[in-house]
């Protein structure tokens, strides 16, 4: 079956979200940094919601160990995550403007690479990399909104995961304590809860609803 036209897709979104919110979502530009369990799920939620421009970034390739929670398929093993997710997002939201990059984000390249985004999602795996991205954005790009995730390993209750507004433009999702380094694995359902918190924080910022 032929895919719907851009106008048909837009009207369907407008009917569900309301004209005012859909206009804001379509005008928004969001960067998702890290395309693992958090980032792949965040990007899909935002694409489905009709966010107009997505910038997806990850240096890594799809590995068999990712399939328990990340939005990739067995036939995508070995592909760059940014390329594999680009294919999936293009099928979900064919009219979304998606920029993808298979590079490692560093203190040096972050200001230039993330300049196009209104809102930046931190969705890395390693704690020191999370801190690096958050510190770099807060120090060098104070005009951006930043939504970070920390603490979603293991099978503790989903209700321990929350969204906190640390400062005016910095939101932190997760339980803050469950660390993979403590031997807890990452389980699809709980990672999804945190990804859902992050994606929803982004949607609320776009809607200009800033409280949590």
């Amino acid at each position: 079956m032929a895919i719907p036209t851009k106008e048909e897709m837009y009207r369907a979104l407008e009917e569900r979200h309301g004209a005012e919110l859909q206009k804001k979502l379509t005008a928004a530009s969001v960067a998702v940094c890290g395309l693992g369990g958090l980032g792949s799920n965040i990007a899909i939620a935002l694409a489905r919601a009709g966010v107009g421009r997505l910038h997806i970034i990850d240096f890594d390739r799809v590995d068999i160990s990712n399939l328990n929670r990340q939005q990739y398929y067995p036939e995508q093993l070995g592909l760059y995550k940014a390329e594999a997710l680009y294919d999936t997002l293009s099928r979900i939201a064919p009219y979304c403007g998606i920029r993808r990059e298979s590079v490692k984000l560093t203190e040096e390249n972050i200001p230039e690479l993330l300049a196009d985004a209104d809102i930046i999602c931190e969705a890395f795996d390693a704690a020191d990399q999370k801190a690096m991205l958050v510190n770099t954005v807060l120090e060098k790009m104070p005009e951006k909104y930043l939504v970070s995730g920390s603490g979603m390993a293991g099978i503790a209750p989903s209700n321990t995961i929350s969204t906190r507004r640390v400062t005016k433009r910095f939101y932190l999702c997760g339980d803050g304590v469950s660390d993979v380094a403590d031997g807890m694995g990452l389980v699809a359902s709980r990672v999804l809860v945190c990804a859902g918190h992050q994606a929803h924080a982004v949607i609320r910022i776009i809607a200009e609803e800033y409280d949590v």
Binding site: F124, A126, A127, D128, V134, D179, L186
Partner: peptide, 25 residues
């Protein structure tokens, strides 16, 4: 800024917020 951790002194009434990151994503 990280480079200023060693030179930033705290005073009466200051509010410090330390966000600690843990691994997993």
């Amino acid at each position: 800024p990280k480079a200023q951790y060693g030179t930033t002194t705290l005073f009466e009434g200051d509010h410090l917020e330390v966000v600690r990151f843990v691994g997993g994503g």
